[in-house]
Design a protein around this nucleic acid. Structure first.
Lengths: 229, 229
DNA sequence: CTTAAATTGTACGAGATGGTTAATTTGTCA
DNA sequence: TGACAAATTAACCATCTCGTACAATTTAAG
């Protein structure tokens, strides 16, 4: 009841700094969580607004609509990931060790960013509609292929890699277990238990993936020849 | 207002047959498409109702609510898949050929049922909440592990498989590329092109997966030793 | 200090959406 | 046949959700 309507406490913030970038970033941060958790249709703009310092109005001010916000989230996450990729230095290693490092790093990078994985899953549910629409994303992801090309070229030149080794195929072969390891953890462990997803199991899986890839590419490779960690 | 209440044109269908099973099945069929296409939150009960012969009320009559319908869809699809699995006969083959067949069949089965893949993706987005709740599903999926156990045991007994071969790990290693091949096709081809997903590319990938798995398990295996097709 | 531009809060509407009420038909069994 | 349970239907409802109108407030420039 309390009828202090006379108060008319217009809830306007008494004072604020003009900091568009910070507001934008905060919205994106919250929206990333929300979209990753509930998907595009499941996410609620009102929930995002509530969790943000900014008001709901600002979401539309900066991102036009829900899809615009989703697209921005997607692009930011993809970009962030590329930076991590670029940090890898494989040129200094032997082809075998370089490839092993790429495999291990990919496996671990996926495991470390479940949020990114979820957004990619969601985007695939939407048939990559928003990824395709993006100008910035398609030309990302190139660096990892580049690294694989370098390693493959050196490995073949040194005669330690099979001539059949193909960078794009390899990227696919390395990504698939790394991605699946995170994306399908819930259903897999429901059906078959969690033993593969503890610290032990994860190390074993990483080792298996390294062994599989090197076994395919490196002439005369024996499982366990290169150890993970 | 409108005073033609006397009319009371109850638009009821003049006549219909009672066929509960058919109605239930029809709803499930339509709902499977809808959920696979748009996810749990994206799916629209009204759309399902419109595409069904039955009325919207029947959906609630038989499945209680949206989640009940989704759960029924999930269980039916999982069950259907198990039947396919059981049709595989690997006991008659040598361990190496048997394992190769399992790999190939898994790869192809996944590629042939994108709808199932999408539902599993969606279920993972929901952290397998509904799969866990199901009584019937968890104990499915056992037959594939059983087959792998048989093959592994025989392979080790014959001295052609490494002692490190583990059925559960193998299932994971075989499933991951098979699943990823379908689940991430949209984003992968957006980033890297479609060449892996034509008939040629798919055959190459299947061969690579066979080579990887056999390379990991079979002592002295060389890529291409067992050919796909 | 005036004033236009930038930024934010509130309140609300239109339409969609999950779910329900109440009626009607069909089939079955005493 | 007639009563009763099961099956089926159309219409309806309460609520949620995206998006917007618009006023209020602050910043910044002249």
């Amino acid at each position: 009841m309390a009828k202090d309507t006379e108060e008319e406490t217009t809830g306007r913030k008494a004072s604020w700094k003009q900091d568009p970038e910070a507001v934008r970033a905060d919205i994106l941060r919250v929206a990333t969580d929300e979209f990753a958790a509930k998907g595009l249709s499941g996410a609620r703009i009102d929930d995002i607004a509530r969790m943000t310092k900014a008001s709901k109005r600002m979401i539309y001010y900066y991102f036009t609509d829900k899809e615009g916000l989703y697209q921005a989230v997607l692009e930011r996450v993809y970009s962030t990931l590329r930076e991590d990729e670029d940090r890898l230095k494989v040129e200094d290693l032997s082809p075998v060790d370089g490839l092993a490092l790429l495999v291990r790093a990919t496996f671990e990078a996926h495991a470390a960013t479940p949020m990114f994985i979820r957004l990619v899953m969601i985007e695939n549910i939407h048939n990559a509609e928003y990824l395709r629409r993006s100008e910035i994303v398609p030309r990302l992801n190139r660096s990892i292929i580049q690294k694989l090309e370098d390693v493959c070229a050196r490995g073949k030149a040194e005669g330690v890699f099979r001539e059949t080794a193909d960078p794009l195929e390899l990227h696919w072969l390395i990504s698939s277990p790394s991605f699946y390891n995170v994306s399908n953890r819930a259903t897999f462990s429901t059906s078959f238990g969690t033993e593969l997803f503890g610290p032990e199991g994860q190390k074993r899986l990483a080792q298996r993936v390294v062994d599989m890839i090197l076994g395919l590419v490196v002439i005369g490779y024996e499982p366990g020849q290169v150890r993970v960690e």
